[in-house]
Design a protein around this nucleic acid. Structure first.
Lengths: 262, 262
DNA sequence: CCGCGAAGTTGATCGCGATCAAAGCGGGAG
DNA sequence: CTCCCGCTTTGATCGCGATCAACTTCGCGG
């Protein structure tokens, strides 16, 4: 069911983009500036929204997606309440989404890596409902929602949204029924899996987020997250040096999720 | 932004359906049995998927939706793993969705009432990912996913899915950052709001689910849910007699969510 | 090079909510 | 009607994870 591992390096693609003098996209639809890397040549096309399209359809889609946008570490791609007009395909980098309650409490609701689609929460209400913040310098493709039908992309969009619904289900599961160890183990396994699907090592990677952000996402305090990292290390499941993670015993981690509570 | 209160009673509509000899829908597309209540006459059209469609488009949509299905209390509409082919519009009744972990733990992931769309989690993987179980005798309209485009309903579907994404966000918020009192208060306010949008009293209603199901949904034990009901009653916020709920002080309930933790 | 602030680690304590247990209550079947 | 079973309530206890606090490490800019 899972597609074969892809061998490319999306996080290293946007370095040669040149100086900051990027041309404004023109309003003239009939003759817009083409992307240096249109979808047909994009490393992420097996993973991104156009996934599964034929060449012909891909060309149509490329007509709609002709703008890129860079978001520097710490900056917002958009904020909750901004009016919705586009969804975004993450080309490179790493972002988090978070929502804020009236009283100031906030929670991280997701971490996003290359190939994922952002901003779909805005379709329903014409406004985005979450903040999207870059955890490292990132680049997205801008997909104007109003033109999605031109490309016959509705099906793909349905699928992307549906997959997000399913992901939310597992997070609800995690927050609703799992103990602290299980949550962290599940979180790490999820990251590992997603890195692997992008051609990176499933065992060794760099955390882009702080302990506090992890804790917020999985419903724990930052101290508990830190303690669990230490304990997993003692138990030989992994090594942790700051944000550099190395999973030594994947099946051991998986076992945490069943063994702990017997 | 919220539509005016609607005055109808979807939960009382399906009684006169007669004996169990309901005709099988025919395969012949050109001349299918028409529904007794097509979308154009349905009480739920302001709330349901075709919401916002013009008469003409509505007629197209009604061509696609020509089957109903009854689900008795305790029965499944579908199960996690079943192959996906249709989404469903809930016409009357009340259902829960739940997912099961390998080790048997399960969690309720949602409660659903008239006008809501079910099964969208299946679009991404061609399989449903949750169990859908009726908590009272219910009736749904069957919407074959493969024919959705005929009706030009993609936009509406996007919106429905997006709204569900946003709802999931608030559940994650609830599970991730709220205390027990806040969770139950938020849950009650949500129910109240949804009943009101369907023309029922926002203050007085009947819970279709058990304490255990509530607890599962909001991440608490059934005992804690029960204790909180008792406490809210002592505090004069509401009355509880088994499953019959009466909210006496809505703003008091809202205040629980900020006042408790100062 | 040093100094400073942000991020992370570790320890000690406390309280919320889970868990175990036992007693009411209610509704449906015979 | 009565019995029975599932749901609910209430009590007593315990443990996980939050919180408060102190200290360390890292990264960055001057």
């Amino acid at each position: 069911m899972k597609a074969a591992t892809l061998a490319f390096h999306p996080f290293a693609t946007s370095k040669s983009a040149g100086p900051s003098s990027r041309p404004k996209p023109r309003q003239d639809n009939s003759k817009v500036a083409r992307l240096a890397t249109p979808c047909a040549k994009c490393n992420l096309r097996e993973l991104c929204l156009p996934c599964g399209l034929k060449d012909q359809e891909l060309a149509l889609f490329a007509n709609v997606v002709y703008t890129r946008k860079k978001v520097k570490r710490g900056e917002h791609l958009f904020r909750a309440g901004d009016i919705f007009d586009s969804i975004y395909a993450l080309r490179s980098g790493f972002l988090k989404s978070s929502v804020v309650l009236e009283d100031g409490r906030d929670q991280v609701t997701g971490f996003h890596m290359a190939g994922e689609i952002l901003g779909m929460d805005g379709i329903g209400s014409e406004r985005y409902t979450a903040d999207l913040i870059a955890l490292e310098d990132s680049e997205v493709c801008v997909i104007p929602y109003g033109r999605i039908h031109e490309a016959g992309m509705q099906r793909q969009l349905h699928k992307a949204m549906s997959r997000e619904l399913v992901r939310d289900q597992s997070v609800m599961m995690l927050l609703g029924t799992m103990s602290a160890d299980e949550r962290l183990a599940a979180f790490l396994l999820n990251l590992s899996h997603r890195f692997a699907a992008r051609g990176f090592s499933p065992a060794e990677f760099h955390l882009r987020m702080t302990r506090e952000e992890i804790g917020s996402y999985i419903g724990l305090s930052l101290e508990t997250v830190s303690r669990l990292f230490s304990r997993f290390q003692e138990e030989g499941l992994m090594t942790v040096q700051q944000k550099h993670i190395c999973i030594l015993d994947i099946s051991g981690l998986k076992a945490v999720m069943v063994h702990v509570n017997e």
